[in-house]
Design a protein around this nucleic acid. Structure first.
Lengths: 410, 410
DNA sequence: CAAGTTAGTCAGGAAAGTGAACATAGTCAA
DNA sequence: TTGACTATGTTCACTTTCCTGACTAACTTG
């Protein structure tokens, strides 16, 4: 008889068991339901118990049982009684998230710049800070120091509990390992294990993800994708990327790949992209293309042209600008058409410099998209521009933490 | 006090409530768990209660409680006791689906041809039948008659209970309404409300979907996508389409749109597609392109060339064929690259005439795909060819019914 | 001020998974 | 042949969770 090792029961290699969805236990169902209810609350905003019961198709009793402990715990707060409806009745008291309890830290990491904010559960920025580092910096320690101190600037001074840190990275990341794979223009960030390193320094859970996916999360939780079950959140500026929300959840490919829609091939015979391949969408719908074409057309300040100035030129009836503006709209539409043909999300939310083109650009893009897809019962896809000056990426980084922590909110 | 109408409680228009995920009740959890367990059983094949308990991370007790009523009901059967492991122990009795109880009807509708089969819960074809109609036929009644009689040929003669009818349509469908929107080469099918009409004639639930999505379901349930949580099932022959499995579920766009990857734009300056737009993937990777290029290259029988003969010509060191074969591989890779860049499913299962290219073609496609995507921690995507003569679409049509009916299997 | 209406709470009941103990049926070695 | 060992499958008391129905609270209207 062999002795059982002190470390625990003898390990026996299990039969090769494929990972499978777990079954739900009553206790697990409670966890799931608490999480879902909080999701619903985010979707609909401050809402009374009775209304939540109607939305989630359960009884008021159940809602009360779920919500009351959270109120006692300080996560949720009960608002002032609202006006009764004209039919009378006890006035409803809306439930909403605490504006101070358990905030999250949101970080946006760009080549040379880091931006950090303390974000409340209600989705508003409490404190903000930013710092710069040399984009050519190769020493990981220097970068980590910079990021850490920027975060510490926004941490609550009273040392109150923070849920975690969410990081949006403007480059390719491995979400499984919390590692940055590559960031254009910032070679020093390549290979940086930002997740584990930050987590160790701060003693907080850290989640990081690809910028357009974080942006999509921001749209889903706090922006115009709020109640949409599927949509594409596109960033279009100096580069192009997409975050896909499919059936209410942000889609990640294996280990966090995917979303590189800027480097899908749309023009086989086209020009060479900075990625080394030929005919990427980015070669016909990013700043680089805009500036090259503007130079050819002889537009003023062509080599620094962006969408806003181009729109103004086009609005002033500058013939070359008008023509370029329209081609830009068509080129932006190409990638959207392809996404719609493949996935048919039905809603496209555009961010980045492209929104500087305003309603005029949006309408043109929409027209080209509608021209480019067959009429189908699914209905015409909607193209919307995000507001130009929002913090949706920071809010998305906060949502990144929330989406992983909701079940920790007891 | 107004009287309550006889039809039921007075209907009161609810406050505009956004559709939201329901919370899970204990009873609902049971339903979900039964369904999940059956899904797991499909994924892993015949399996003992104890093994199922390990896979689904619940106790043997629970599995027994779920499985026993289904055995009593005849849906599941207990196999012969297996050999004990070398360590001894009571021999396990694998549980599996009944090969005769509650079969489904699978239908594949193509321009001019309909194929029907009776498929068992175990995923094997019990009976099969096919019929032809004029592809130019415009009378809906004639088509429905043809489909109905083809189905009745395979219905069990003893009138045993059939779960339902699944239909794969080689064209655009509206899955919400069970309506065919458009089928290339068969204008009479456009607008046909096949779902409701068949359902009324047969008295059975009918589900229909776009062919590549049905094919993906077949791969997911009975093919090489069986345990994969995400993959793309591509049909590539006279046309190109894709069915996407994302997180274990087949993705449908709004009302069943999406999957039209053949008409994504990959070659802006290219040739005009039969869809009327320019530069679709289909214009460079379907039969039409192959035959046009073969004619230019002076290959024999160019106007009826398909992939199999081309592969043989190339294998015989026919210079023009070899070069065309390679370009075809590259062109097929283009669309796969784009899908991988956007969604990174990590696995691509190819069906249709393209598989006639054999391992030689598969390797070339894989090489071009790997050349066309950045190295990323997610790992290199796998490209696989389905076996040439399988019934995966019919099995997928059966799975279409199963996936909607699992919770009806008590 | 009474009737009607809506919000929120309290006690009892049903569904479902858990965990420990037990019956069942094999292997292996003395 | 027997006993120790191992693994499968079943029985029963227990916990969690949500539902039902009755109740209190608060406001509007006539």
């Amino acid at each position: 008889m062999t002795e059982t090792p002190a470390l625990g029961p003898r390990y026996r290699a299990p039969a090769r068991v494929p990972s499978a969805p777990r079954l739900i236990s009553p206790a697990g169902a409670g966890q799931v339901n608490r999480t879902r209810l909080l999701q619903i609350l985010y979707d609909v905003g401050p809402t009374s118990r009775a209304q939540l019961a109607r939305i989630s198709r359960v009884t008021k009793t159940t809602i009360g049982a779920i919500v009351q402990p959270m109120i006692d715990d300080g996560i949720l707060v009960e608002g002032e009684p609202q006006q009764s409806s004209s039919q009378g009745g006890k006035p409803a008291r809306p439930i909403w998230f605490s504006p101070v309890d358990r905030p999250t830290v949101a970080v946006h990491l760009l080549p040379g710049t880091v931006r950090a904010a303390l974000v409340s559960l209600t989705g508003s920025v409490i404190t903000e800070s930013s710092a710069n580092f040399e984009a050519t910096e190769l020493d990981h320690d220097v970068i980590i120091d910079c990021v850490t101190s920027c975060i510490q600037d926004v941490l609550p001074s009273d040392g109150g509990a923070v849920l975690g840190v969410g990081v949006a990275v403007g480059g390719i990341v491995n979400t499984d390992e919390g590692r940055i794979v590559e960031v254009n223009l910032a070679p020093g960030l390549a290979g940086l294990e930002l997740g584990p390193l930050l987590s160790r320094r701060l003693g907080l859970p850290v989640h990081l993800d690809h910028h357009p996916r974080v942006q999509a999360l921001g749209d889903r939780w706090f922006g115009s994708g709020r109640r949409a079950s599927s949509f594409a959140s596109i960033y279009c500026g100096e580069a192009i990327g997409v975050g896909l929300v499919i059936d209410g959840a942000v889609h990640r490919g294996v280990a966090g790949a995917g979303g590189e829609v800027g480097h899908t091939i749309v023009d086989l015979g086209g020009t060479v992209c900075r990625c080394g391949r030929t005919g990427c969408w980015e070669t016909i719908a990013s700043h680089r293309w805009l500036q090259a074409e503007a130079a050819i057309a002889g537009l003023p300040a062509a080599d620094a042209l962006t969408v806003g100035p181009l729109a103004r030129l086009a609005g002033d009836d500058h013939a070359g600008a008008e023509e370029l503006f329209d081609r830009f709209a068509r080129n932006v539409a190409i990638g959207i058409i392809n996404l719609q043909q493949i996935l048919a999300p039905g809603l496209f939310i555009l961010h980045g410099d492209v929104v500087q083109g305003g309603e005029e650009l949006r309408e043109r893009v929409q027209k080209y998209v509608l021209d480019g897809i067959p009429v189908h019962a699914g209905g015409a896809p909607a193209i919307t521009f995000a507001s130009a000056d929002d913090d949706i990426t920071l809010l998305g980084a906060a949502a990144l933490v929330l989406s992983q922590s909701l079940d920790l909110l007891t």
